[in-house]
Amino acid sequence: MALSKKLLVEGEREVLTLRTHVKTMILSVVLLIVLCAAGGFLVAIVPDGDQQQWVRIAVIVIVLVLIVWWGVIPLVKWATSTYSITNRRLVYQHGFIARKGRDVPLTRVNHVTFDKGVIDRIFRCGTLTVYDASEQPGMVLKDVPHVEDVHRTLNELVFDAHEGPHDEDNRPGGADDRTER
């Protein structure tokens, strides 16, 4: 779900839209498999008797509630949460029925940091923290896929927002001022 075109102002273009890394869904998938297996096993071992049908229905209802709670809800949250970067701002939106979000204009960004733990390095993701000139704490974007690339792109956009468009020699990572010409 990309940033809605009606939210973009004139001259603003979307540069990047991403979701949290799919690794955040691993526990939910494992729980779904375990719940389905456990539910099937419990339904199969219900002893014969007058209450057999009601016990099976109770097991199925409990398993379905747990599947929705631990599987469907996290999937919907994952699918409806996005990080969008435009040439003017950083936008975090989340929510299915009611949408919430936070925008940080790139002109207000002081600095951007990223953090990658061991598991993050394996999955090629990390946490991006954007500090801006406001009283709110920094915007923390967890489990960002390819966090170094996003960090680099965001830094270039912040530089552009603060300094204006740059030429090849004035870009971060461009020619060094100390180099002889």
Results as ranks from 00 to 15, higher is better:
I33A: 07
H94D: 12
I45N: 03
S81W: 13
V140F: 07
P47Q: 00
P105T: 04
I97V: 12
H21F: 05
V72P: 05
H162C: 01
D120M: 02
V109C: 00
G138T: 03
T107F: 04
C36T: 13
L141G: 07
F114G: 03
I122H: 13
I119L: 12
I67T: 04
A79T: 07
D120Q: 08
D177T: 14
A133K: 10
V91T: 05
A37D: 05
E14D: 11
D167E: 10
H166A: 15
H162L: 08
V43T: 13
W78A: 01
G95S: 02
V76F: 02
L32D: 11
K116E: 12
Y92C: 14
R181K: 14
W78Q: 00
A44H: 10
T82M: 12
V63M: 03
P74A: 02
R88C: 10
L18S: 06
G39R: 03
E168Y: 13
R121P: 04
H166W: 13
A38G: 05
E12R: 05
Q53D: 15
T153W: 12
S84H: 02
L128T: 03
R13I: 11
E135A: 12
E148P: 06
F123E: 03
R171D: 08
I67Q: 07
L75C: 05
G173C: 01
L64I: 06
R99S: 06
L32V: 10
V158C: 01
M139P: 07
P145S: 02
W70I: 03
H111F: 13
E168D: 11
L128D: 00
T17C: 05
P137H: 06
V91L: 05
D149T: 13
E10L: 12
S84E: 02
D115W: 11
A79K: 08
R56Y: 01
G173F: 00
V109P: 01
D160T: 15
H94L: 11
E10T: 12
F114H: 06
W70G: 10
A98L: 14
G138C: 04
L32S: 15
G95K: 09
L3N: 00
I67H: 06
I33Q: 03
I97N: 06
E12G: 03
V150M: 01
R181C: 07
V34A: 11
E163V: 15
V158D: 05
Q53T: 14
V9Q: 14
V68A: 08
T153I: 12
L157E: 07
D50P: 14
D115T: 10
T24C: 11
D115A: 12
